[in-house]
Simulated scan of single mutants.
Amino acid sequence: MTEAIISIEGMSCQHCVMRVKKAIEGLKGINKADVQIGQAKVKFDESLTGKKEIEEAIVKAGYKVKG
């Protein structure tokens, strides 16, 4: 398992948290997604998905990835 901490801009409430969590957990290979306002801590199987795909899912959900 690989772990990544991703900083996210544009989140302001629990609805934002749930939207990002749902987007991340919709990807194959996600073991755990701990999402808070401004950050996601994700454990995933790199053979099934990568950090880039996770960041793309966050952007598609309507938020901006920092860094």
Rank of each mutant, 00 (worst) to 15 (best):
Y63F: 15
Y63K: 00
A57S: 14
I54P: 03
S7A: 14
A61P: 02
G67P: 00
A40K: 01
I58N: 02
M11F: 06
Q36P: 00
C13K: 02
E46D: 11
E9Y: 06
K51V: 12
L48Q: 15
S47N: 10
A33S: 11
S12Y: 15
I24M: 12
M1F: 05
K64W: 00
Q39E: 14
F44L: 02
A57P: 06
K32S: 13
K41M: 09
I58L: 03
I37L: 11
I30E: 06
V35Q: 09
K41H: 09
I37R: 06
V35E: 13
G50Y: 13
K28P: 13
L27H: 12
E55P: 01
S12V: 09
A4T: 13
I24R: 13
E25R: 12
I54C: 03
E55R: 15
S47E: 14
V65L: 08
A61H: 01
I58T: 03
E25K: 13
A57R: 10
V59M: 05
K22M: 07
A23I: 02
A4D: 09
V42R: 01
E3M: 07
V35C: 08
I54V: 05
E46G: 08
K64I: 08
V17I: 13
M11L: 09
G67M: 06
D34W: 00
S12E: 12
S7K: 15
C13T: 03
I6D: 04
I24V: 15
Y63L: 06
V42H: 05
G62T: 02
K43A: 09
V35H: 11
I37Q: 12
Q14K: 05
E56A: 14
K22W: 00
K51W: 03
K22E: 15
I8C: 04
E53Q: 15
V59Y: 01
G26F: 00
D45K: 13
Q39T: 11
E56S: 12
A4H: 03
